[in-house]
Design a protein around this nucleic acid. Structure first.
Length: 515
RNA sequence: GAUCCCGUAGCUCAGUUGGCAGAGCAUCUGACUUUUAAUCAGAGGGUCCCUGGUUCGAGCCCAGGCGGGAUCACCA
């Protein structure tokens, strides 16, 4: 079991022991922080606070801060280090004669390392080289690091020895966050997106609710679930793949607008767009339809972009995309005709199959007409839609929970917003006819018995709820991870999820089963 | 699940035709009281992802496996 320690780990453990022998507490309890690094850099005033050697400044800027030692330059009886806290980094100047007897020589120089967390009290000044720094008058170890931190060096914007190994960074995200300020920034932006959206919804009076993660019948999306087991009840349960059916029960119950921001779980492959657990926002609003919802989505997404960037624009790699309202609204069949030259409206299943084959797609007998249309769209249209656009009016067989279109036969009132070639959200006028809903479920069950592992289950309780009467409603689902990717310009979902799922590092002999 | 690429010191990487395992940073020892990729002098540090094979000899060649990345498939 005992792992062999590296030389540097041995050295740090010996340092820990020596600290304890010297009576120096290696793990502190608290430190009164008065300033963060960024505050000092911002508030420092040369006319008030600057002073060269010895000369007293007009007014001392007294500061107390805490953070991690990121670099050290020891020059005999004085040293410089960079301290990093949540706000950024600042240089600290440490002089032997300003610290207690022997502390500098026996503790600071010998027993502290890059990666240790310390508290510093002193005053701000500007060095001869022009860098605003903190002259330490008190220094205390708050946490001894027993592992060496991957050390990066930087000059004039160039970074050396940067940790680049993706696996290292995902597995040891804590280290990734320490050494990459841009990664910290992305996750702060993610938090702002989620809180910004919550505020947007709350301001409009929608009620945030919580619905079950563990469900006896899963539904609301086409996906395979994770299955688990409740021991005391002796019953199988599924982790939710969507919140939809529970939220609409609440619309039946008399809430006129409810939303939930939560994890959904889908038992499918991993890719740069898919993590098995991901964050979804679903919203349902009574007495509204999908036209209204399109305007709502435009306003929400535009406002989130402005919140993050100060303007309704995002940059992804080389491209800049405007998210300003209004967005184009294009019926699905028009979008397909635009890109492929084929009008698929009113074609039967075999005609659709031959068109798709003519375009070079592989079509097999299990694929229904809806699926074929979806394939054509996904292959030839979606990737080319860079500026935001609402694609509307989908085939009914692709959308078992959406309401039939009020004028277009065979279609439902559904839209997806596509940005940068990817779906950003999915929404529809909700089906509130319990008789139609039952027959749609039955179609799904039939698909399931033909081997479609993603077909929905028939949910009797949901039908019972609809039979009491659900007001007309508009529903929306937004993948928060993909929204974050878009708004922060990331091209892998793993870069917007703090701890993305990875295979285990090494075979473990622990049983994954609970007690 | 398929294909391609990758896996060498704490980190970033080199490693010739198959011939004693290398560099920079980090670490250790010493010098240095405003440095900043600090500098100068010296030292230590390796399961070359794992298992097997070929060979006198494998980091390098071959087979299988593990992990990661990218693309595809599946999938929103």
């Amino acid at each position: 079991m005992a792992r062999e320690l590296t030389e540097q780990e041995e050295v740090r453990r010996e340092a820990l022991q020596k600290l304890q022998e010297l009576g120096v507490r290696p793990y502190g309890y608290s430190w009164d922080v008065t300033h963060h690094a960024a505050d000092i850099l911002e508030d420092f005033d040369d006319t008030q606070h600057a002073a060269d050697d010895g000369a007293e400044p007009a007014e001392r800027m007294e500061v107390a801060l805490a953070g991690r030692i990121m670099s050290r330059r020891i020059m005999g009886k004085a040293s410089f280090l960079h301290l990093q806290d949540e706000s950024g980094q600042i240089q600290v100047y440490v002089r032997r004669d300003d610290l207690p007897e022997d502390y500098y020589n026996t503790v600071f120089k010998k027993l502290l390392d890059i990666g240790d967390i310390i508290g510093v009290r002193g005053f701000a000044f500007r060095t001869r080289m022009g860098e605003i720094s903190v002259h330490a008058e008190e220094l205390e170890l708050l946490a001894k690091a027993l592992r060496p931190l991957p050390v990066e060096k930087e000059t004039e914007g160039r970074v050396f020895n940067e940790v680049t190994d993706k696996e290292f960074r995902y597995r040891q995200r804590y280290v990734d966050l320490i050494v990459h300020s841009d990664v910290r920034h992305i996750f702060r932006q993610r938090a702002r997106i989620i809180s910004g959206m919550r505020q947007f919804l709350d301001e409009r009076g929608y009620v945030e609710v919580e619905t079950p993660v563990l469900q006896p019948i899963y539904g609301g999306a086409a996906a395979r679930p994770f299955k688990t087991q409740h021991n005391a009840l002796g019953m199988p349960l599924f982790l939710r793949i969507a919140d939809e059916l529970y939220l609409k029960r609440l619309i039946v119950g008399g809430f006129d607008g409810v939303y939930e921001i939560s994890k959904d779980f889908r038992n499918e492959g991993l890719s740069r767009y898919h993590n098995p657990e991901f964050t979804m926002m679903e919203l349902y609003v009574a007495y509204r339809d999908y036209e209204w919802m399109m305007s709502f989505v435009e306003e929400m997404v535009e406002s989130l972009a402005v919140l993050l960037h100060g303007k309704p624009e995002v940059s992804i790699g080389e491209t800049t995309i405007s998210l300003a309202r209004p967005w184009r609204r294009v019926p699905l069949f028009d979008a397909i005709a635009e890109k492929t030259g084929h009008d698929l409206r009113g074609r039967d299943r075999d005609e659709l199959a031959s068109v798709a084959k003519g375009l070079g797609l592989e079509i097999d007998d299990t694929m229904g007409s809806g699926k074929i249309i979806d394939e054509v769209f996904g292959e030839f249209v979606e990737p080319h839609l860079i500026e935001p656009v609402f694609i509307t009016d989908y085939p009914v067989e692709l959308s078992p929970l959406a309401k039939r279109h009020r004028t277009k036969e065979g279609l439902v009132e559904r839209f997806e917003a596509i940005v940068n070639g990817k779906e950003l959200c999915n929404a529809f006028s909700e089906l509130n006819d319990p008789v139609d809903q039952r027959s749609r479920f039955e179609d799904q069950v039939a698909l399931g018995s033909r081997g479609d592992s993603e077909a929905m289950q028939l949910d009797e309780d949901y039908l019972r709820a609809l039979e009491y009467g659900m007001p007309p409603a508009a529903g929306l689902g937004v993948g928060m991870d993909r929204l974050t990717m878009l708004l922060t310009g990331q091209n892998s979902i793993r870069d917007v999820i703090l701890f993305p799922l990875l295979k285990p590092e090494a075979p473990t002999d622990q049983t994954p089963d609970g007690p």
